[in-house]
């Protein structure tokens, strides 16, 4: 009899777990969608609005990083501090309430509005993700070098013509194939990405790199190596 109650309880618990699991499955994506609709700015957001937030936070002394349109760790902390001061719950994201407190302006329509859609922040973050995923254990210069390879590929006829095209080319980078690149890059990776985008190329024009300890591809060994940095061989 006693064993029976335990079993009944076990059944109850099992069923509850199942119900919860299914409910989570339905609720989680919904929550995700909603946050996109209200255009909340969060860690990883990029663009002109982020720049505006950074500009304001910097003017008011909450933020001491670069006004680069990339919502990184520093911006996150600055937003949290701002929220704490203004009695908004410290989420570290810029939702409607924080937005209002920051006083983000409405834009007026005009015949010709000055160009505003051009920014390079998205690319910096994307490249930093690729660098972080591929080479976070490498010396700093090795991280810049990975970014430089991406830049060299863009200009090379055998490869796609955009940063996203090069990074997401099927099979081109292991960290992209196994999803490792979708982590938040650290400050070092962001810095390396900026240096690479600004034209520093420690490799001298390499378009491939590999780790000889891990690579099984024979073809890659036939490419002339132009530089060795850390564990990576850079080749043309």
């Amino acid at each position: 009899m006693k064993g029976g109650t335990i079993l009944k309880k076990a059944v109850l618990v099992l069923m509850m777990v199942l119900i919860l699991a299914f409910a989570f499955n339905i609720v989680y994506p919904l929550h995700f969608r909603r946050s996109v609709e209200t255009a909340t700015l969060y860690w990883g957001s990029t663009g002109e609005e982020v720049r505006e937030v950074q500009r304001r936070l910097k003017n008011w002394g909450y933020y001491d990083g670069a006004v680069d349109g990339i919502y990184g760790p520093k911006t996150f902390q600055a937003v949290k501090n701002f929220q704490a001061k203004h009695g908004i719950s410290t989420t570290g994201t810029v939702g409607p309430q924080t937005r209002a407190a920051l006083g983000l302006p409405e834009k007026a329509a005009d015949a010709y509005t000055p160009t505003r859609g051009v920014s390079s922040g998205d690319n910096v973050y994307l490249m930093a993700q690729a660098i972080y995923g591929e080479a976070r254990g490498e010396p700093y210069i090795g991280q810049v070098a990975v970014g430089a390879v991406i830049m060299n590929r863009i200009n090379h006829p055998s490869f796609p013509n955009t940063i996203a095209g090069v990074i997401f080319q099927p099979g081109a980078f292991t960290a992209v194939t196994d999803g490792q690149m979708f982590m938040q890059p650290n400050e070092t990776a962001l810095k390396a990405a900026r240096d690479a985008l600004n034209g520093w190329d420690p490799t001298g024009g390499a378009i491939y790199y590999y780790n000889p300890a891990k690579t099984t591809n024979r073809w890659i060994y036939s490419r002339p190596v132009v530089k060795v940095i850390g564990k990576h061989y850079f080749a043309k």
């Binding site: 390079s120 690319n123 863009i154 013509n161 955009t162 940063i163 985008l197 034209g199």
Partner: peptide, 10 residues
């Protein structure tokens, strides 16, 4: 007609 404004850094 590059659509990667990154090179503009230079």
């Amino acid at each position: 007609m590059v659509d990667y404004p990154t090179l503009i850094y230079d």
